[in-house]
Simulated assay, not measured.
Amino acid sequence: MRILSIHNYYQHPGGEDVVFEQEKTLLALTEHVFSLTFNNKKGWRGAWQTFWSPWNIWAAQRLKRAIRQYKPDVIHIHNLHYAVGPIAVRVAKRMGIPVVMTVHNYRLLCPSSTLFHNGKLFTDSLYTEFPWKAVCIGAHSHSSVKTFWLSYTTWLHKKLGTWHMVDRYITLTDFAKQVFAGSSLHLPPEKLVIKPNFVANGFQLSEARGHHFLFVGRLTQEKGVEVLLEAFAGTDYHLRIVGDGPLRTMVTDADQRHPNITYLDTLGRAAIDQQLATCTALVFPSIWYEGMPMTLIEAFAAGTPVIASNLGAMESMVHEGQNGWRFTAGSASDLREKIGLWLTTTVTYRQQLGLEARREYEQRYTAEQNRLLLLNIYHSTTGAT
Rank of each mutant, 00 (worst) to 15 (best):
T153C: 10
Y82C: 10
R62F: 06
S151G: 07
Q256M: 06
L121N: 09
S112C: 07
E207A: 12
Q256V: 05
R68H: 11
Y237C: 08
N79M: 06
L36D: 05
D244K: 10
W132S: 09
R257E: 13
G312F: 12
L187Q: 08
E31P: 00
Y9C: 02
Y70N: 15
P259S: 04
N201H: 09
F148A: 12
E31H: 13
Y289G: 12
I137F: 01
L375G: 13
A83N: 11
T153Q: 05
I297A: 08
R107T: 04
N8R: 07
A83W: 01
L109N: 02
D167L: 09
K133W: 03
W44K: 11
Q22F: 14
G383R: 14
K191P: 00
G210I: 01
T381Q: 00
G182C: 13
N40D: 06
G268A: 11
L26H: 01
M292A: 06
H164Y: 10
L80A: 10
T344G: 05
I97H: 01
R364D: 09
E190T: 03
E230V: 02
E129D: 12
A134L: 12
A281M: 01
M101H: 06
E320L: 11
L109T: 02
F20V: 08
A277L: 12
S316Q: 04
L375T: 15
D334G: 01
H238W: 14
Q275Y: 02
Y9M: 01
H258G: 00
Q322F: 06
K120D: 06
N376A: 11
K146F: 08
E207T: 14
K71R: 14
D255G: 03
G182T: 15
D334A: 01
P86M: 08
E320Y: 09
L115H: 12
Q322L: 08
R326I: 07
P246H: 05
A134S: 15
T171K: 13
T171N: 14
A384E: 10
T153S: 09
V100G: 09
M292P: 00
P305M: 01
Q351L: 12
G330V: 02
I97K: 07
F122E: 14
M1C: 05
W48E: 10
D273A: 15
P246R: 11
G245H: 01
A66V: 05
V33E: 10
P259H: 02
I75S: 05
V318L: 06
H140G: 02
L156Y: 10
F20C: 04
V199R: 09
L311W: 06
T382Y: 04
Q221P: 00
T280D: 06
F232C: 02
K177P: 00
W325Q: 07
P98T: 13
I6D: 03
P188D: 15
F180A: 04
G330I: 02
T25C: 01
F203Q: 01
R65Q: 14
T249Q: 12
L296T: 14
